[in-house]
Amino acid sequence: MAFKEGTGKNARWVYWLGRVRKLYKKQKRSKVEVKRPLDVEELFGGGFQVVASWYTSTPQRGSYRFNVVGDPKPYDLDHFIGLVRLDLDMATDRYELHNKEEQLQALAAATRRTEPSKKSGGKKTIGEEEEAAAARRVQQTAEHLQPQAEGVDERNQRDQRAAERAKAAQAPLR
């Protein structure tokens, strides 16, 4: 999950890896614990919150210890940026990111997308700006907006009109 740490010019966006302890669905003025398995896609926009046990990073890049930080606070899934796979190294009692470099790059990119966009004055995130730009590109390259290919009949008619204009231009004036 991505979080803003610090304030003012010292503020920066970071990610925390966590394991869901409880999942809640907000309903009117209360929240109800959800115990059935859910697909990740079901969680967004559905008023869900999670209470997590967090992994704490170690000095070794991509390596974490579990449950060092306790946190009973429920967090909205607005902070959620993605799933990761961690493998337990029994010898060191540490969790290592599977495909470490690939996942670290993905986490950094996802965290960056949660930062406020300078273009919108902080009203939108960088991710929202990127999605809007992608939607504009799709709209601008829509098939119905592209010029249609010229068929054989159209090309022959165009060539015939061009030949007639050229012949008329060469005809002597009377």
Rank of each mutant, 00 (worst) to 15 (best):
Ala133Lys: 10
Gly18His: 00
Gly45Asn: 00
Arg137Gly: 10
Ala135Cys: 01
Tyr55Arg: 00
Leu17Ala: 09
Ala108Glu: 13
Met1Pro: 09
Tyr24Glu: 00
Leu107Arg: 01
Ala149Ser: 15
His98Val: 14
Lys35Arg: 13
Gln170Arg: 15
Leu17Arg: 01
Asp76Glu: 12
Ala135Pro: 00
Asn10Pro: 08
Pro147Met: 11
Ala171Leu: 12
Pro74Gln: 07
Leu43Gln: 04
Lys28Thr: 06
Gln105Asn: 14
Trp54Glu: 02
Arg174Ser: 15
Leu173Trp: 04
Arg61Phe: 10
Ala171Thr: 13
Asp89Ile: 03
Ala110His: 04
Lys73Gly: 11
Pro116Asn: 03
Ala2Cys: 10
Val84Thr: 04
Arg94Ile: 08
Lys4Cys: 14
Thr114Val: 01
Ile126Gly: 01
Arg158Met: 10
Tyr75Glu: 08
Asp89Gln: 08
Val68Gln: 12
Ser30Phe: 07
Phe44Tyr: 09
Leu43Arg: 01
Gln160Val: 09
Leu17Ser: 10
Ser117Phe: 04
Gly46Ala: 05
Val51Leu: 01
Glu102His: 08
Ala142Met: 11
Asn10His: 12
Arg165Ile: 11
Asp71Ile: 07
Leu104Glu: 05
Lys28Glu: 14
Leu97Trp: 04
Phe80Leu: 05
Gly82Ile: 05
Glu33Phe: 00
Ser117Leu: 08
Ile126Asp: 03
Thr92Ser: 11
Ala106Trp: 00
Gly45Glu: 03
Glu41His: 05
Phe66Gly: 05
Lys28Ser: 13
Thr111Glu: 03
Val69Gln: 15
Gln103Phe: 04
Phe48Arg: 06
Lys26Cys: 08
Ser120Thr: 07
Leu88Ile: 05
Leu97Phe: 00
Thr7Gln: 15
Leu77Gln: 06
Arg94Gln: 14
Val20Asn: 00
Arg155Glu: 12
Gly122Glu: 02
Thr92Gly: 04
Arg165Tyr: 13
Arg113Ser: 09
Ala52Gln: 03
Tyr15Trp: 11
Asp159Gly: 13
Arg85His: 12
Asp89Pro: 03
Asp89Gly: 10
Gln146Glu: 12
Phe3Asp: 09
Gly127Gln: 08
Val34Trp: 05
Arg12Pro: 07
Thr125Glu: 02
Arg174Glu: 13
Pro59Tyr: 05
Val50Met: 01
Lys25Met: 06
Glu115Leu: 04
Arg158Ile: 08
Glu164Thr: 08
Tyr75Arg: 08
Val14His: 08
Tyr75Cys: 02
Ile81Phe: 00
Ser53Lys: 10
Asp76His: 04
Ser63Thr: 14
Arg113Gly: 07
Arg61His: 10
Gln140Glu: 15
Arg112Met: 10
Glu128Asp: 10
Gln139Asp: 14
Ala108Tyr: 05
Gly18Glu: 02
Val50His: 00
Lys9Val: 13
Leu83Asp: 12
Arg94Trp: 07
Leu77His: 05
Phe66Pro: 05
Met90Glu: 15
Tyr15Lys: 07
Ala135Gly: 04
Ser30Arg: 14
Lys73Asp: 12
Gly6Arg: 07
Lys28Met: 12
Gly45Ser: 03
Arg94Ser: 13
Glu143His: 11
Glu150Leu: 14
Lys118Asn: 11
Arg19Asp: 06
Arg61Met: 09
Arg165His: 11
Gln60Phe: 11
Lys25Ala: 04
Ala108Val: 06
Met90Ala: 15
Leu145Ser: 06
Gly121Ile: 06
Gln148Phe: 12
Asn10Met: 14
Arg65Gln: 11
Lys124Tyr: 09
Ala91Tyr: 09
